[in-house]
Design a protein around this nucleic acid. Structure first.
Length: 425
RNA sequence: GGAGAGUUGCCCGAGUGGCCGAAGGGGCGCGAUUGGAAAUCGCGUGUACCGCCACAAGCGGUACCGAGGGUUCGAAUCCCUCACUCUCCGCCA
């Protein structure tokens, strides 16, 4: 959500933002609704002022006739007020629904484009392995090494279900611990965030109302979060945080749930697209400064790249184009890992900043040096998600004998082992 | 799941229909006092929105006593619904 004053003063910016993000939001409609809103608020306030002025008169009048006259007058005022209030409520309803649709303004550096096909590559890292044998797909490797059980996963959990077992599970934990350790060393506060979350943090982060299709909803009207960002951003919801803690950096871990509505035919084999997965997420709250946001956005990207580099996974970084940005995102980088069996890069990370779009909705403020309350800025980005990261690891580090080499940085978390080999049985 | 108690400002806490944005205390800020401090004394101390105005200061208005609705000319105060917290019982990882 943006500041209505800002919107009114910069309608062209909003119009341009909508165009760039390929949203059909009409700023004129909102401005018109806001005109009605302001006018009605004024009228209602004036009637209430009249009413409030009458109150002491009534209470101080002992003459019964005079008192009844006044009460009769007040009844008329009340009728008028109720009519206006009903109209105001209508206008507010429309106003609110438009306000949550206002797109945040993308950064100048965001490229034009309609979909992820238009994202702009800005960097590649790592050497794409040339295998002197026929490389296997993630699906084959994981089954050969007995790291996953898809059949039983589907039996138990349904479409896109899976069991991660043996080294599949151990390697996942190794990845989590490696990522969490790396970020804690950099001063990030570790947080195990709830996945079962009330609707407010979803509205606050911008996943509702537009993204409801992709969320699981409980019979208590709570939702399952698709990322720890939601719970983590909820942490300081409706709070004024001490300025001294900013920037507050979290490394959050949680299970993640996504309905993947609309992607039924996609990635049906393997561990790329799942309804239930795990993610180590970076979340930052900082002071309301564009420069800070930009700086920390780069930091999040560097952290994620460092993790990929230490793991040795070849990847590329793209700047997402306007049409591939979420409603609240100002700018986003995706990191995509090389997947040999597909011969292309697949998204493993998404790193974005929002200015005060989320904190305004979440009501997370801090007091700046002149005592003014300001909405903080927020950012978040993947550290690493499993099992999707397993795909990149097992495919890129597979050997001719069917084993996979464990990345060095993960070995301490895997009992010092260097390889995952086919079980003897 | 059952029974009961509660939810007031930064904190504690008073307040059962009008004079309550809200007593009192604490905290915090400024000032006096002091060589300095403690103690003491004085003053101040919320947020959002609307209007005037320079989107400043300031002034005026409205709203906010867990949330939503109702009764009433008028509600922190009465009624209803919901959420949350606490205590006891049951169940349970």
């Amino acid at each position: 959500m943006l500041d209505i004053k800002f919107i009114k003063e910069n309608p062209d910016l909003i119009k341009e933002a909508a165009r760039k993000k390929h949203s059909n939001f009409k700023v004129e409609e909102l401005i018109e609704a806001d005109g009605d809103r302001v006018a009605l608020i004024k009228e209602v306030d004036e009637i209430r002022a009249k009413q409030n002025a009458m109150n002491p008169k009534i209470s101080s009048t002992s003459d019964m006739k005079e008192r009844n006259d006044l009460i009769f007058q007040m009844k008329e005022i009340k009728d008028e007020l109720q009519k206006k209030e009903a109209r105001l409520e209508e206008v507010m309803k429309k106003w609110r629904s438009l306000m949550v649709q206002v797109p945040n303004v993308p950064d100048m550096s965001v490229p034009e484009g309609a979909s992820d096909a238009d994202n702009k590559e800005i960097k590649t890292w790592g050497n794409i392995a040339k295998f002197d044998f026929t490389p296997k797909s993630q699906h084959e490797i994981l089954l050969d090494l007995d790291m996953v059980d898809f059949d039983r996963g589907i039996k138990v959990s349904g479409f896109r279900g899976y069991f991660l077992k043996n080294d599949g599970f151990l390697l996942s934990m190794a990845i989590w611990q490696f990522c969490i350790d790396s970020l804690v060393k950099k001063g990030y506060s570790p947080l195990l965030a709830p996945s079962l979350v009330k609707k407010e943090p979803f509205y606050g982060t911008g996943y509702l109302p537009q993204g409801e299709e992709d969320l699981y909803k409980t019979q208590d009207a709570d939702y399952l979060a698709g990322t720890a960002e939601v719970g983590t951003m909820g942490f300081y919801m409706d709070e004024i945080v001490p300025k001294e803690i900013l920037p507050k950096k979290f490394v959050s871990f949680s299970p993640c749930f996504r309905r993947e509505a609309g992607s039924h035919g996609k990635d049906t084999k393997g561990l790329i697209r799942l309804h239930e997965f795990y993610k180590v997420e970076q979340v930052i709250l900082c002071e309301a400064s564009h420069e800070q946001s930009v700086k920390l956005h780069e930091e999040l990207r560097e952290n994620a790249e460092e993790i990929m580099q230490k793991l040795g996974i070849p990847y590329r970084v793209v700047i997402n184009c306007g049409g591939d940005l979420g409603l609240g995102q100002v700018k986003k980088y995706d990191i995509e890992a090389w997947v040999p069996s597909e011969g292309k890069y697949r998204e493993t990370h998404s790193i974005s900043y929002f200015h005060d779009f989320q904190t305004r909705r979440l009501n997370t403020k801090y007091k700046d040096e002149d005592g003014k309350l300001k909405f903080a800025h927020s950012l978040n980005g993947t550290a690493l998600a499993t099992p999707r990261a397993l795909v990149a690891i097992v495919e890129n580090f597979q050997n001719a004998d069917g084993s996979i080499t464990i990345p060095e940085v993960l070995r301490p978390y895997m009992g010092g082992r260097t390889k995952i080999e086919k079980p003897q049985v």
